[in-house]
Write a protein that binds this DNA or RNA. Structure first.
Lengths: 193, 193
DNA sequence: AAATGGATGTGATCTATGTCACAGTTTTAA
DNA sequence: TTAAAACTGTGACATAGATCACATCCATTT
């Protein structure tokens, strides 16, 4: 149940077996079935989540009713709404399982506890968030400087598994285009070469 | 020279006077005149920078020659290219002073040293990066869900001082539109109400 | 096995924003 | 103090991508 988390943590920091055993006590394992939600817009995000198995998406819905996907979280990734998690404010995001998933949940209190008791986790999360920031900045600059097709091609290379496992209209709303546009892009690519 | 840095750090973490005195020894003060660069595309980003006074921008140039601004950094903000700073790889960004500026520079080696000797800084940077990530995620979702005018109006509210101090074409490339479009938006707003 | 809802493809049109071109104004540097 | 460079505005036109409207097609549930 904690295999992937342990592996990921050990890739970044060195902690003792006892420290990891302690960490385990602070997480709540949970199974979430396909199409079920971890939380929905308007509720506070009371857990930050590690994905041991499965696939999640976090997304917002704008005033016109369109969905915009912030993140797909596969095995070994973290998910949640940082702002809501830290402040307790209602979230603007929804988190939904796209496949039957096994999650490890941690509350703000337990997380604070973990950082306090095992300071190496402060470093772990700093590095995790840092890499996330770098990737998000790239994605932002990419939406300014590249066409929808270029972004799709890039995603094909970077996350081929996500594209395999996720319906097209969700890929579209991750890339910031409509499903119709992505459908046309894809048929053009297939015919073109 | 270190007033703003000290203030900002104390807003987030508690450290002793001696610890801050130690931190000060790891920074290199530098004045950067308007239109001068801290580094340019292709060079590694060897310093992360705190702005004591003035205003910086970081931006990329795409294949068509268009500029895209990642960040404006005013007094009390940090700037740099995280990826290049951490890996030593050549940066894709340029950092330029938009006004005569006073900066505090720190190298990767000194930064590692700082985090090791004063672990509270690990927490400081985790929180800093965390807030930056939250803001960048919002900006990304905003480019998907709002029009150019809405983004401009939002920026007017959030960063009126940046808009005052920075030429229109740079605001445009921060918002992800052309200067012509922003010019038209602005004249429309002025006439409209 | 039928039925319901989710997912995809594709045509016809619309629109926000980009591109190009030029003029006028302000700032900077020699 | 003057030339050069940076900045802003605006018209005419072009275009990537959005919208709307159907038609299949596929998967899940009963």
């Amino acid at each position: 149940m904690f295999d992937f988390l342990q592996q990921k943590v050990n890739e970044t920091i060195s902690i003792s077996e006892e420290e990891f055993e302690y960490a385990k006590t602070l997480f709540l394992p949970k199974k979430l079935r396909k199409r079920r939600f971890l939380f929905e817009e308007g509720e506070p995000c009371i857990y930050t989540t590690f994905v041991e198995k499965g696939l999640l998406r976090s997304y917002t819905i704008d005033e016109k009713g369109s969905e915009h996907i912030l993140q797909f979280a596969m095995q070994g990734w973290w998910s949640g709404d940082l702002y809501s998690f830290l402040t307790g404010e209602p979230s603007e995001y929804n988190i939904e399982a796209l496949e039957d998933s096994e999650l490890l949940l941690i509350t703000k209190e337990s997380w604070d506890q973990l950082l306090k008791e095992v300071p190496a986790f402060e470093r772990y999360f700093r590095i995790l968030i840092q890499n996330n920031l770098i990737a998000t900045q790239r994605r932002l600059m990419g939406t300014f400087s590249t066409t929808a097709e270029e972004r799709y091609q890039k995603m094909l290379k970077e996350f081929p598994d996500v594209i395999q496992r996720v319906p097209l209209h969700m890929i579209a709303s991750y890339l910031g285009v409509t499903r119709e546009t992505l459908s046309r892009i894809r048929s053009q690519i297939t015919s073109g070469s």
